[in-house]
Simulated scan of single mutants.
Amino acid sequence: MVIKDPSDARSRRDQALTACCMAAAAESDPLLPSARRASMLMDCLSVLRAVHPVDRAAQIDMRRFRQGLRGPLGTLLPPAGEGADQFDAMRLFDAHGLVRDGLEDLCREHMVPHRALEQHWSWARVRAEQEERRLYEVLRRLSPEEYRRARTLLGEYPAGPVRKLRRAWDRLWMRFDFFEAVSDWPWCQLDGWWYPCPDCHWPMRVVRHKTTVEVRCEAHAARGVHYRWVPGSGRDQPAPLVATGKRATPVQGLPASTEHLALTRPVWRYGTLPTLMELHLRNEIADLPHVTVEIWPGKLRPDEYDLHITVAVPGRRKRTWRVDAKAWESVTALATALLERDAPAFPLTIVLPDHQEREQHYLAARLRGRRTKVTTCSQLIESVRTACGGPR
């Protein structure tokens, strides 16, 4: 596995996080042969030891490594250096002993080395970073009108029957070859059926416990989109799902066949989810008095920012927001990615999902001095309502 410069605290921490994530993936894979699992764990332990001082590294044996993977990661990670992050308290496994849904995204966002991916991860994971980059290259080659249409479709039609998708995507269909057959995704299937999330319409994950089966959206489970599967309907009809979350509205199972497609995970994660945030923001404020909102407004670069919001109340100073919505699993990795860009030439507002409210101050501190404000989706909506004279 490739090791970054060990003199850099952030690089050492990223490498340790990568090693822990890869080890957790190996520990949680029931199909992985025991010899292969042992080999992967040894490689990950070697990487983890390499980023610690010698005296500290000697204290981390395999037993302590495996125990540490199931607790807060602070027992395994080197110090964060300047700027604290959330990873000391993070757990890679949930209360049921299952690996958390965002593990792949966390690894990808923290720059898992390609060589490590090729050695230890499936080909689908090797493709993930290339897939994300290819999406943005395709989007940037579109005209502004086509760009806006494509972004809307990413949010509204990320999965479904192939005929319905073809009709919706129309002339853009042949340019967006980011769909795969749901039949190739066993992780979302129950007796030959799959269930779309009521919020993002992408396949929900099937999680099998000892006595129950849970169906949940990886992105929206924290908002209450999760269900319990009730077997017994037979293979001719999808088994019903019992809502166990506050946003678990009824969903209809669909055949997990080659005639049902879904966007690849990276495109859903970094294309569909931010688009849904942007559409939600637009819809929540578009009808407010004195508000003008443009979505993907750039003429030459529609991807420069996502929303341009103007509040012009007579007799008051005009307020404007240029909004860039972000739906990353790791706010730490997001901060690093944003800092690698040129500072914006105008005041910019980064919007995070509501469930990352506790991390907005960390991101704001990392971006201090770059004309960038950090807020959440609900906070921005409230700010716009207040600016146009609405109730707090």
Rank of each mutant, 00 (worst) to 15 (best):
V215Q: 05
V215G: 02
V215W: 12
H220P: 04
A222V: 05
V225A: 02
V225H: 07
V225G: 01
R228A: 14
R228H: 02
V230D: 11
S233D: 14
D236T: 08
P238Q: 08
L241V: 14
A248I: 00
T249N: 03
T249G: 10
P250V: 14
P250D: 11
V251S: 10
Q252M: 10
Q252I: 09
Q252L: 15
G253D: 02
P255E: 00
P255W: 00
T258P: 05
H260S: 08
L263N: 12
L263M: 05
T264A: 08
T264W: 07
W268L: 12
R269F: 04
R269V: 00
R269G: 01
R269N: 07
Y270W: 13
Y270F: 11
G271N: 05
L273F: 03
T275Q: 15
T275R: 15
L276N: 02
M277V: 00
M277I: 02
E278R: 13
H280P: 01
L281V: 09
L281P: 09
N283S: 09
E284T: 08
E284Q: 13
I285S: 05
T292S: 13
W296D: 04
P297G: 04
G298A: 01
L300E: 10
D303L: 13
E304G: 00
D306F: 07
L307S: 06
I309K: 04
I309E: 07
T310A: 14
T310L: 14
V311L: 04
A312D: 09
V313R: 14
V313M: 06
V313E: 08
R316F: 07
R316K: 15
R319W: 07
T320R: 11
R322E: 02
R322D: 04
D324T: 03
D324W: 03
K326T: 00
W328G: 02
E329C: 07
E329S: 10
S330V: 06
T332F: 03
L334I: 03
A335D: 12
T336W: 09
L338Y: 01
E340G: 11
R341A: 10
A343Y: 11
L348H: 06
T349E: 06
I350Q: 04
V351R: 12
L352A: 04
P353K: 06
D354Q: 12
H355Q: 13
R358S: 10
H361R: 06
Y362H: 14
